[in-house]
Amino acid sequence: MSTLDDKAKEVSAEAVDEAETESPTEVNEKKQDNGPWGYIILFFIIGFAASLVIGWGIFPKVLYSQKKQPIDFNHVLHVAAVEEGCESCHFFREDGSFSGVPKLAQCVECHEEVQGEDPNEAKFVEEYVAKGREVPWLVYSKQPDCVFFSHIAHVNMGKMECDTCHGHIGESTHSKVYEENRITGYSRDIWGKNIAGLKKNTWDRMKMDDCAECHAENKAVPKTVETLPWPISWMPRPYEKPASSQVRVQIDKDACFVCHK
């Protein structure tokens, strides 16, 4: 009660003050120091700038936690050592499912003993191979549980290259830091490095809109599938006519289930 009362008094006091003191001297004040407007604008700018700095600079840093991969992995070294490129380790199983990150058993085929002098190699063999523990890799492109993605539909049937979505990961010599969204638990690669969500390359982001964008682009191609090649910029090699003529890129809005489970 008292506070309200005080406030009321304050307000009225101020009002009275304003009414009594400001009005007669109004003109003078304006002339002298441009009134309160200078301060008002100054503070506005301070608030504006500060919040921009927070929003664009600090916020992203706070939002994502940084995690190191358990083992620093050199893709270049491995790609050079295997024969079939990505598919040597990231292959399709018989049932058409995609193996994803290799299991320990696969690695052990070559890494039963420590090779070379890389400390990461030693750590890998000691901590994981010797103990038979799977390496808890952090998957940059890990989609949330609600997403169903068929690699085989894109790679085998759509003849897409891994790079299109994953970038040139095969050319990396070190594992980059894995950034995890503290709120959602997503990998940052899904939203994209750019906090505004802007992208330059097809592999910069992996949100639903990015899938949609690519699918929408394909929609624009001539309908008679047999007479392709598709005029699609990211298509690196000549389009191969599929066995069946029924190439259909999912573009319909009714196809939610195709990617969601």
Binding site: F43, F44, G47, F48, A50, I54, G55, A196, G197
Partner: peptide, 15 residues
């Protein structure tokens, strides 16, 4: 004014 500026700035940031 500071608050209004802050609000405007925040609205223009991704936050």
């Amino acid at each position: 004014s500071l608050v209004i500026g802050g609000a405007a700035g925040t609205a223009l940031s991704p936050l």
